[in-house]
Amino acid sequence: MLTRRIIPCLDVRNRRVTKGVRFQNNVELGDPIALASRYYEEGCDELVVYDITASAERRPIDIEMVREVARAIHIPFAVGGGIATLADMERVLLAGAEKISVNSLAVANPALIGEGSRAFGAQCIVLGMDPVRVAVDARFPSGYEITTHGFRERTGMDAVAWARRAADLGAGEIVVNSVDADGTRRGFDLRLTRLIAEAVGVPVVASGGAGKPSHLADVFREGLADAAIVAGMIHTGEFTIPRIKSELAASGIPVRATW
């Protein structure tokens, strides 16, 4: 049986993993390669590495870091941050990443999704989105608006409409990161995750709000997520991947048991 994936997320700034609440008050958590290796040994199913300042600083992604991660872990990992062109994508893939995550720059240039998908395969192209809760109206039938640039900019785009469009353009997976839940550790936005999961035929990765193992069980069961991102709850050492997996298994969620 296909298992539900647990995916640690490393937000990297100046070669250090950081964690903030709603993109603010970031604290440093350590070396990305050491953390990636630790989570790999502990049985995480995949990893996401965001170079969170590449886009704002208008510089290419830290490719040497991508190479080091690829040498350290032998599971799939996605890389995001500042990927604007096919050449950027190719550099990241040749450095050993399995997937490329595009977010703000795909909103600015949706054609990037299709170009990447045709060049490297849909399985390589992950659309990250940061929806924020808004009043339901004609512009936002889902009640969620897409934001960009670390939640700082509004786009006027409805989250479900954007997810459908991205999947049609060739995104192979969609990471739904709730602006409202991000960093709160009070649970995923289940309604949002489910709305997107029911709207698209590609796997949906829930992100934002994981604080304890039961939050993952909720988003797999009620949010229909195929995978879930964890960050603060493991970075602080409060929970470990094996503990999350054993609690999920006990509640009947299929998780990878051998590693």
């Binding site: 049986m1 296909l2 199913d45 192979g172 796997p203 195929d226 990878r256």
Partner: peptide
């Protein structure tokens, strides 16, 4: 069923 996504992506036994 719709929850069987294609492609299959992930870990299976």
């Amino acid at each position: 069923v719709p929850t069987d996504k294609v492609p299959q992506i992930g870990w299976n036994s």
